[in-house]
Design a protein around this nucleic acid. Structure first.
Lengths: 216, 216
DNA sequence: CGCGCCCTCCACCTATAGATGGACCGCGCC
DNA sequence: GGCGCGGTCCATCTATAGGTGGAGGGCGCG
């Protein structure tokens, strides 16, 4: 063999998208798709089996999120390399993925060339973050972290709960709820709960799916 | 030729997804992808050029939305058949797409078999709506329509405006704003503006993208 | 024309939300 | 041990939001 192919694992729950990725990558020189996975658990199994050079993964996955997949795999294989590929560009997701050890973050709207170039770059040990993403990341870095409790309160706000209901839910007094709200409004840079709710959804702090109905 | 292939036009702005669809469809018997388009304007041009039997389209498209594409094409070619394929399942989108004349509505998470079966069914003149989607549609049908003004107010609420700001923006009194809010809260089946905002986003009444920053 | 719907506005009242400042406890860290 | 920080709680005040009822004008439709 003249040169080694880059072994790639594709992790993506949407059939058509996965199919598309595999189709794109299979025609690229020097790239070989060694495995596919449709959820987080399967992704880890496939990784162990094939030891790919680069893992291309979605963030929103059944069973285990993309971030969890990255974290777990890196615990046993720290040199593993990841490219996150997602439709959404919520600041929080980007931050968490890169934090977990992803080397690149791409949106699904990118061209095949970009994708292939990124795989090569990441395999060569480089990182690759598109400018638009880098900017969001920068914004996010400037923002303050929410405390766990503030996060709990924010989640309830997004669910449409009143302060009284939040107090009951979290078993704290309404006064405390207001304290947390006041604090989180400041950190999010907004002035009321409605803005906090939309900001939380937009930034991916509270995933939109989570508010369908569950979690009471 | 033993039997005619079904001519399909694929309209989808995300490269990898479009690639995946084309790859999936090209291996299916009796289906031929005659064209691809990455935005609404191109979709109409491709339709005119190839006169496909079935058009498979995303709803969120650059330049012209999927709904607009369906409407415009049906103005000149009423018998054209459409399958809407989208990641989101906001009630409003489903409603508008079917209203515009789509015969089927599929989520991107579906299997290739479902997709192919749906294309055949739609080509044969049938409609195909997955049960989960049908249920949402039913819910939506039961809901009351928002008046244009109520919609304006709701949009401002989602943007995080206060009643006073909304009044200024729409050049009406704050009392009127409250009247509209009261009315739309009832129609949406929610009890406060925060719930109205998340409901609007969830149902796709106000697209999440629209609140990035623009529109002042 | 009369009816219904929408938009507009008003007054009034109550409940909720947000702002402020001060307080106590527990925990990790230097 | 002292310090900082997060979480908890309190009281209080003001602004905003939401609920109710009533009222006028415009517009389309049978």
């Amino acid at each position: 063999m003249t040169q080694e192919s880059i072994k790639v694992l594709v992790v993506e729950d949407h059939h058509v998208v996965r199919q598309g990725l595999v189709a794109l990558l299979n025609v690229a020189d020097g790239i070989e798709v060694v495995g596919e996975a449709a959820d987080g658990v399967e992704a880890i199994a496939q990784f162990r089996k094939h030891q790919p050079d680069v893992t291309l993964t979605d963030l929103r996955l059944p069973r285990l999120s993309g971030v969890e997949v990255i974290q777990r795999i890196r615990m046993e294989t720290p040199q593993a390399r990841f490219i996150v590929l997602t439709t959404y560009d919520g600041d929080e997701d980007i931050y968490r993925a890169l934090q977990a050890g992803a080397r690149a973050y791409l949106l699904k709207g990118m061209t095949s060339d970009e994708l292939i170039a990124t795989i090569r770059a990441v395999h060569a040990g480089k990182s690759h973050i598109p400018p638009a993403i880098a900017q969001k990341l920068a914004e996010r870095m400037g923002a303050e972290e929410l405390t766990p409790r503030e996060f709990d309160v924010l989640e309830q706000i997004v669910r449409g709960k009143s302060n009284k209901e939040i107090a009951a839910e979290l078993e704290i007094s309404e006064a405390t709820v207001k304290t947390h709200i006041n604090s989180l409004l400041g950190k999010l840079g907004v002035t009321d709960r409605t803005q906090a709710a939309t900001a939380a959804i937009q930034r991916g702090i509270v995933p939109l799916e989570s508010l369908r109905k569950p979690g009471q």
